[in-house]
């Protein structure tokens, strides 16, 4: 019983009305809204530019955003528990730098990828341990993690390092043909496999249910005897692992390592998760929604590329605007059901 008395003071949190009230289709509402937005944007694009309505434009959304999809998957886990991970962009850059440097020195690509995953997962695990055992806000710990990872990038090299290794270049150029003259990259298949695995973990395992329970009410989850401590630490390790995978995917995509790469990517990942309908307070959300969120961000970029007159900074403004709209919708939604 002594562990109970050392619990953090009970924060009075109303039993999430969202989850109890919503039955059937209603709890998918935020995610469905995002899906509707995506379809509407695609339709508008098709109306404005005839070449927009092609399967390849749709598939390119995946090809150009594989790393962001994987990042968003990891971030979904973290945000579902009510936390946040600001280090993901820097870990992506670190993974790219490590793989580019080691490949240049003639390491075996399989060993490099394994090492990168260990570094990413280890860094996440370390942050999770500090967050959980010293009771420091995830925000500040992952911020320090971001400094550390970005700083290690600088220590490795300030210059951009090209990747010329055979395996990486062949994966980068590989195209998997689909019926109808379409193709995807191998990275897309990997990203989709990770999404499927995350979906399975979240909805069909004890770990996944504990993640939702912690986000709903951490205190009750602990009183129910769920492994709160272990789950919270593992969630950050998972996010670190996802960041490392995203880093490898980004290496395939850009065939280089650069210490300033992926700057601000943590914001894109958080934006994708929020736009995908996950509540920032935790407890409610879907990993598939986050994927749709990434697609919405991707289609914004495609729009701007198609338009030609709009400058690149509109992307940031539109993403900020979308983020705002969805946060306000979440507030409205939470109030209505309360």
């Amino acid at each position: 019983m002594s562990s109970l008395s050392t619990l953090t003071p009970l924060t009075v949190k109303e039993p999430s009305p969202l989850r109890s009230r919503m039955r059937g289709g209603a709890r998918y509402a935020p995610t469905l809204a995002t899906l509707g937005l995506f379809i509407a944007m695609f339709a508008v694009g098709a109306g404005m530019y005839p070449s927009f309505l092609s399967g390849q434009v749709f598939l390119n959304l995946f090809i150009d955003n594989t790393f962001l999809i994987v990042l968003a998957v990891g971030m979904t886990f973290v945000i579902l528990t009510g936390g946040i991970d600001l280090s993901v962009g820097a870990v992506v850059a670190l993974s790219m730098m490590v793989s580019a440097t080691l490949l240049q020195q003639g390491w075996n690509p399989a060993a490099v990828i394994f090492l990168v995953l260990v570094i990413g997962g280890g860094l996440g695990l370390l942050m999770g341990l500090i967050i959980q055992y010293f009771d420091i806000q995830p925000f500040i710990v992952t911020l320090a993690g971001m400094f550390l990872a970005r700083g290690l990038c600088y220590v490795i090299s300030l210059d951009s390092i090209p990747v010329t290794e055979g395996f990486f270049t062949s994966v980068a150029q590989a195209q998997i043909p689909l019926p109808g003259d379409l193709f995807v990259s191998p990275g897309v298949l990997l990203a989709l496999a990770i999404v499927a695995a995350a979906f399975f973990i979240l909805h069909h395992t004890r770990f996944g249910r504990t993640v939702y329970a912690i986000g709903g009410n951490e205190h009750s989850a602990m009183l129910m005897g769920l492994p709160v401590t272990r789950t919270k630490v593992l969630v950050y390790a998972l996010s670190g692992l996802c960041s490392a995978i995203a880093g490898v995917l980004f290496s395939f995509y850009s065939l280089s390592g650069y210490s300033l790469a992926a700057q601000g990517m943590e914001l894109d990942a958080i934006a994708a998760v929020v736009i995908g309908g996950t509540l920032l307070t935790g407890g409610t959300g879907y990993v598939l929604g986050s994927v749709v969120g990434v697609l919405v961000l991707g289609i914004v970029q495609t729009f701007i590329a198609y338009d030609g007159t709009l400058s690149s900074w509109w992307t940031k403004i539109v993403i900020g605007g979308l983020l705002l709209v969805f946060i306000l919708l979440q507030r409205l939604f939470a109030r209505k059901t309360a």
Binding site: I317, I327, R331
Partner: peptide, 25 residues
């Protein structure tokens, strides 16, 4: 009533875009 981190994240994301808009990049 948005959490401070998230509320200011909106401007953090959009703000640099707005600054670039003002300077024309």
């Amino acid at each position: 009533g948005v959490q401070p981190i998230i509320a200011t994240l909106v401007l953090m994301t959009a703000g640099r875009g707005i600054a670039q808009l003002i300077t024309g990049g």
